[in-house]
Simulated scan of single mutants.
Amino acid sequence: MRKKLKNLKKWQKYTFLIIGVLFLVVGSMVGYAFYNVNKTLSTMHQPIEREHSDKRPEKVNFIEQDPISILLIGVDSRNGNLERGLSDTLMVITVNPDDKSMKMVSIPRDTRTEIVGKGFEDKINHAHSFGGVEMAIPTVENFLDIPIDYYVKINMEGFKDLVDAVGGVEVNNSFAFSTGGMDFPEGKISLNGKEALAFSRMRKQDPRGDFGRTDRQKQIVQAVIKKGASFSGITNLDSILNAIGQNVKTDIASTEMLDIQKNYKEAINDLEVLQITGTGTTISRIYYLQVPEEERLRISTILKEHLKLNE
């Protein structure tokens, strides 16, 4: 089921935080601050070794404005291992500068699929815990049958540092619940970093499960963007950059980020969210989401067409 966003500006800001929040900072800062931004970009950059995907004949060319795909990975690193933690969130974003549009699909963490490199089926979020980004990327590529050109990984545990760096956030809670010894009443509430992390992680009490949790995560990110872009956020630039540098990793180089901003920025004005549906099932006492083949093919076909892979 497709769902057009009602407020494109908010989603625009959400996506920009994940794949290029630093563009906003670069555009606002000069001199000393610009030096710190470049330092943060260098800290974020973490290239990986992987074989060239057979789903992409040639490397994308930013100057020619080839459509690109980015895998967003939110990692549960409560065990202190950002490299091999479970992936709380897996989102794929495709960007087509020709028709100036973006598509985004969130893959439910319990989705049962083949783990590439292991030779068996498991929850898709286990791929990162088994083999890091190097295993998560080909597993997602195999599931959606599209190439993944780049990745951005966020440490969800450390994300609370970013919330605190902007001075906390405000969100609108759709229903009251308690988790981790904290109460979250219905309505507009203010959250510090620790509270924001708990708010975004809860799913067992949510009748919508992973989908409800994803919506809360979006609210947190949108609120961080709003505070970070304000004057108070700019005055806390050092703290914000430090939080980003420690908790975000990507194989997108700083020069490539600038190329994306220059040649793809108009695409963020049209963002469509795709939702994967499936049926919950229990196998050997373990819960999985079984995605029907026709549903997987539907999503895959949409993304392929957006990436112009069938031309």
Score class of each variant (00 low, 15 high):
280 G>K: 10
264 Y>E: 08
159 F>E: 04
102 M>T: 04
36 N>I: 03
23 F>V: 07
105 V>T: 11
200 S>D: 03
163 V>S: 08
28 S>F: 10
290 Q>H: 12
270 D>E: 14
87 S>P: 03
53 S>H: 13
301 T>E: 15
64 E>Y: 09
194 K>M: 06
26 V>L: 12
13 K>R: 08
58 E>P: 00
307 L>P: 05
136 A>M: 13
13 K>T: 11
63 I>N: 12
283 I>D: 04
75 V>A: 12
160 K>Q: 14
237 L>H: 02
95 V>R: 04
203 R>F: 06
188 K>P: 01
34 F>R: 14
265 K>Y: 10
140 V>Y: 08
116 V>H: 07
201 R>I: 06
230 S>N: 08
233 G>L: 03
21 V>T: 02
147 P>R: 14
224 V>K: 03
292 P>S: 09
259 D>R: 11
19 I>M: 02
298 R>K: 15
180 G>S: 10
56 R>D: 05
116 V>E: 12
249 K>L: 01
282 T>Y: 15
274 L>D: 13
141 E>C: 11
71 L>T: 02
27 G>Y: 00
54 D>P: 14
193 G>S: 07
58 E>N: 14
48 I>D: 02
57 P>V: 12
242 N>E: 15
309 L>W: 12
286 I>V: 14
171 V>T: 03
212 G>Y: 04
258 L>Q: 10
157 E>Y: 11
53 S>D: 09
110 D>Y: 08
100 K>P: 08
104 M>D: 02
152 V>G: 02
309 L>P: 13
260 I>S: 05
166 V>F: 01
126 H>F: 10
180 G>Y: 05
215 D>P: 01
47 P>L: 05
231 F>D: 05
190 S>T: 14
233 G>A: 07
217 Q>V: 03
50 R>S: 15
241 L>W: 07
168 G>W: 05
13 K>G: 12
154 I>C: 00
161 D>N: 15
165 A>S: 11
154 I>G: 00
82 L>V: 11
235 T>M: 13
236 N>D: 12
88 D>W: 04
195 E>W: 02
218 K>L: 09
250 T>C: 05
108 P>K: 07
16 F>V: 01
46 Q>W: 00
